[in-house]
Design a binder for these strands. Structure first.
Length: 179
DNA sequence: CCCTGATTCGC
DNA sequence: GCGAATCAGG
């Protein structure tokens, strides 16, 4: 892959937006993150403030704290959590309300459990993130589950079950929880 | 182990 | 100039 003017421009833009080298490599395609980093240096673009590791953009994708184990039933009330979402050229931190369906629900009967979607963008998927699509691909709120997936499956344990369930019966759980 | 960017150096 | 290998770190 050549570093065409177009690709270089995209590189500059994404780098300035705070995306990680691997994410940029994913968007450009055909290059490794090392290639991206090397190019960044050659272009004399400003490096990341802190050497080594985590970047602001990276934290955005970090998984929220795991839901505490629940032994007794509880009313799924709305909860809030802080998320950092990429909007245009900058990262906005905002409090969002999690509606019932998005919050993990555990019925003591072992009825159904919905995973908390990490809402990853296509470029943020890796080999071990759940690739279950959520939403309308034509709309901009489209994203992927992004939960941890087994190496053998493209989906997390929950979506893997939904995935290979042909059309068969199954209980209300699956019917009422299409995600 | 996952990830991050930084540097080196053979090509 | 390029980028894989390597290093250093969270």
């Amino acid at each position: 892959m050549n570093w065409t003017d177009e690709r270089v421009e995209k590189l500059k833009r994404l780098w300035s937006e705070g995306l990680s080298a691997s994410q940029i490599a994913a968007q450009l395609g055909g290059v490794s993150r090392n290639a991206v980093i090397g190019k960044v240096h050659r272009l004399n673009l400003p490096g990341r403030a802190k050497a080594g590791g985590n970047t602001t953009a990276t934290r955005a994708a970090k998984r929220p704290a795991a839901a505490p184990p629940r032994t007794a039933s509880f009313a799924p009330r709305a909860a809030t959590r802080t998320v950092v979402r990429a909007v245009g050229a900058n990262m906005l931190k905002e409090e969002v309300e999690i509606d019932g369906l998005e919050e993990i629900e555990v019925a003591p009967n072992g009825r159904f459990i919905l995973p908390i979607s990490r809402k990853l963008a296509l470029t943020e998927l890796t080999e071990r993130t759940c690739k279950w699509p959520i939403g309308d691909p034509m709309k901009d709120d489209f994203h992927f589950c992004g939960c941890e997936s087994a190496e053998t499956s493209p989906y997390c344990s929950y979506h893997a079950k939904l995935a290979y369930q042909p059309v068969g019966e199954r209980r209300k759980a699956a019917n009422s929880a299409p995600r």
